[in-house]
Design a protein around this nucleic acid. Structure first.
Lengths: 232, 232
DNA sequence: CTCCTTTTGTTGCATATGCAACATCATTAT
DNA sequence: ATAATGATGTTGCATATGCAACAAAAGGAG
């Protein structure tokens, strides 16, 4: 499971923005970080576990999920390379994770010890403070994303939630055809709607010529109708 | 409108945790902060405005809201003394506020210039870094609260949303009778449900002996029934 | 290829809730 | 006190969608 982290480059990771590879290597050792692989469907951690790590997605995709007593689940957020997850609990000093993290596909994750990350160390880690500053910016952005998430979920109809989500993703990727990181089941968990009801709405939208889709690829055809949907 | 800030104490504000009053006074001047009063219903800022300030609630209550094209609104969050708002946009360097902030009651707000807050100054502000660290912790906690918010909104029924919210508030206040910061209209915006439908559910819950309420005071009577509701 | 599993789409039915219109009660101003 | 305004509760109706059960399609393993 363990691996020599020095062989990888992490300069493109937001967490290490502005830090050169040599420093990252030092930091990584200083952090006592561990790289692990997770098969699709397995959990990086469960809600209720002791909050000890911040995760970096090296490969694959993880969903931050909340399962409830009645067997329902919501996908609260999704992280893929080069994103991180669990950082808020580190900073807010929460003792137990309130959410679970599950590998959506086979994934490779670096787990960093929370204490090591937050307490600047003495030797060799001159860039540690830089990392902490990066962390702050990441959290602030995630915060804003969560606001958008709430906006999406609170739309009245499935149609509106779906369209809001798709348009939002398209804006972010600056493309009018996007590939979403969810299958239907996951998308319904993300939008917080029933899967079959979602299918029904999707079929209707395609029938009405609003959009076309194939698997997890979506393209908007009629922006006027989209606008109409959102204004309704 | 303007006021000499030195006359007030701010040591109990999370933003100034660990900073003594003298330093706070220096910082406040260094920040070029302004104290303003807002009548109930007026806006501290609108979505789309240039993001220039972080707000501190000195008195009253503000709702962070998102209005959409179809005239619906969601209350994303609520801040009262001694909370702050708008800090994420400061740190994430977002140019326009995506949300509006409205005074829920007559309120007194300190507005701090974003740039002044984030860029450590040279003279006299030795505690500036401390403030920034406080800011980080605040954001992380808000992040976690937003997760809980999503969990609440995504409950299936109005009954479940309501109960989830009330129980959550009661846990936080460690009381079994609470006074919520919303009237019915605001509560419906917060839970993202129809006001009259909320009233209907409330009446039903009272009729069934699950809880009692008067205005914005709520008390749980039957925890078994509560449990049943959430497990259903 | 065939078999099995997973993913996705379809459909009938039940129902929670959005909506609108009105009633009741509380609050504030004159 | 009276009037006006706002907050809250009530109710009938329409409907979006949750749910369940099944069908169809796609993907993987042997």
């Amino acid at each position: 499971m363990k691996k020599n982290l020095k062989t990888n480059t992490y300069t493109n990771y937001p967490l290490f923005k502005g830090v050169n590879q040599n420093s990252i290597n030092v930091i990584m050792n200083c952090f006592k970080s561990v790289e692990k692989e997770y098969k699709k469907g397995t959990y990086i951690w469960h809600a209720g576990d002791e909050a000890s790590y911040v995760g970096i997605v090296v490969k694959g995709q993880v969903n931050i999920v909340k399962d409830d007593i009645s067997g329902d689940r919501v996908i609260i957020n999704t992280a893929y390379n080069p994103m991180i997850f669990g950082e808020s609990y580190a900073i807010a000093k929460i003792s137990e994770y309130p959410v679970s993290v599950q590998a959506a596909v086979d994934s490779k994750i670096i787990l960093i010890d929370i204490d090591k990350l937050m307490i600047p160390c003495s030797v060799g880690c001159s860039f540690h403070n830089k990392v902490i500053k990066n962390l702050v910016e990441i959290i602030a952005k995630k915060n804003i994303k969560l606001n958008g998430r709430i906006e999406c979920i609170t739309k009245k109809t499935i149609k509106q939630k779906l369209v809001f989500y798709l348009i939002d993703e398209m804006k972010m990727n600056e493309k009018d055809e996007i590939q979403i990181p969810y299958n239907r089941n996951e998308l319904s968990d993300y939008l917080n709607v029933n899967r079959s009801a979602l299918s029904r709405v999707l079929s209707k939208l395609e029938e009405d010529g609003v959009l076309i889709f194939n698997k997890n690829k979506f393209r908007i055809l009629d922006y006027n109708k989209i606008k109409e949907i959102m204004e309704n």
